[in-house]
């Protein structure tokens, strides 16, 4: 049974990754998870300087999901390199550094510093960050900005470069195409969906920033549709993410066309979700006489006249 997947120069032992921000820096709870059974770990978003993040409350549960507004709280790339990376290097899994920044230059600076370190296997770029120069509008909502970031970072590294796309745009496929044409190796689809919840007794928003990112099973159908849209738009691999809790969820993403998947919110509930998903996928493949998980990818059966973006909604 071949579970592995190769992206650029890196071969992952399986197609399961932990999503950024849902697994700490990667080595927090060794007693709860055997990370050697995961394809890779994506670190918390790293910025040039440490970030305090947003005020409390930062999270609230919503039907089949949760809203968060952590504000990219992180220790900064320098402390990550001195304190966390030495512990990550010795893990028997691939390490993907996630980068967040408020300017194109900062993205480049963080990546250049990480580029000098051993033990980082790939990068995932969080473009759902406010662009300080453009008055705080998200990079991720402007395909021109996503193009610039991808182009600039591509020049600086030969390691796999993955761009994590936001679903909070009209056509995510436009952004997927931009990433592909500027040299990204893959795209992660999707980041959280903007959402809101209100306490009717206090009439206050349930999280301090009023709106936040919705994640969990509530967004899985959205994520699947966005993956569907992207895999029809680009040839580079799409990494599926959004509400994956079980191996059945993961198989759905593979069938639609995702080459790898990430578990996010599920890690908060069962830190070893990725491992049980990997085991479930193996059983599914054995049962269906598949000797390579890859043969599942993009095997969705649809009528020829089903279009990616349905016009009759």
């Amino acid at each position: 049974m071949n579970e592995s997947f190769t992206l650029g120069s890196v071969t992952f032992k399986n197609r399961i990754l932990t999503a950024s921000g849902t697994f700490g820096y990667g080595n927090e709870n060794p007693d709860l998870v055997d990370v050697s059974k995961l394809g890779g770990i994506i670190t918390k978003s790293l910025s040039w300087k440490p970030r305090d993040g947003n005020p409390n409350p930062r999270i609230t549960e919503t039907p089949s999901g949760m809203l968060n507004s952590i504000g990219l709280a992180n220790i900064g790339v320098h402390k990550f390199i001195s304190e966390k990376l030495p512990k990550l290097k010795i893990l028997d899994t691939k390490i993907i550094a996630n980068i967040a920044a408020s300017s194109v230059k900062e993205y480049g600076d963080v990546l250049e510093l990480l580029e000098q370190q051993e033990g980082i296997h790939a990068y995932e770029i969080n473009v759902s960050c406010p662009n300080v120069k453009e008055g705080g509008l998200n990079f991720g909502n402007d395909s021109k900005q996503v193009a610039v970031i991808t182009k600039e970072l591509r020049k600086k590294t030969t390691r796999p470069l993955v761009i994590k796309l936001t679903p909070n745009v009209t056509h995510i496929s436009e952004f997927a195409r931009v990433c592909e044409s500027e040299g990204a190796d893959a795209i992660s689809v999707i980041n959280t969906v903007i959402g809101m919840a209100v306490n009717i007794n206090t009439r206050k928003p349930k999280i301090a920033t009023a709106t936040g990112g919705l994640s969990g099973p509530a967004i899985k159908p959205i994520a699947l549709a966005k993956v569907f849209e992207c895999v029809h738009a680009v040839k580079i691999p799409v990494i599926g993410i959004g509400g994956i809790m079980t191996w059945e969820d993961a198989v759905e993403f593979f069938i639609v066309g995702a080459s790898m998947i990430q578990t996010g919110t599920a890690n908060f509930i069962n830190p070893s979700t990725g491992i049980s998903i990997a085991e479930g996928i193996k059983m599914y493949c054995v049962k269906n006489s598949l000797n390579d998980v890859g043969t599942l990818i993009g095997t969705l059966e649809t009528d020829k006249n089903v279009s990616v973006i349905s016009s009759w909604l």
Partner: peptide
Amino acid sequence: ETSMACGIGICQGCNIE
């Protein structure tokens, strides 16, 4: 007491100033 998601320090949802 605050609301929490993971309870083990990874989600960073339970901050106090």
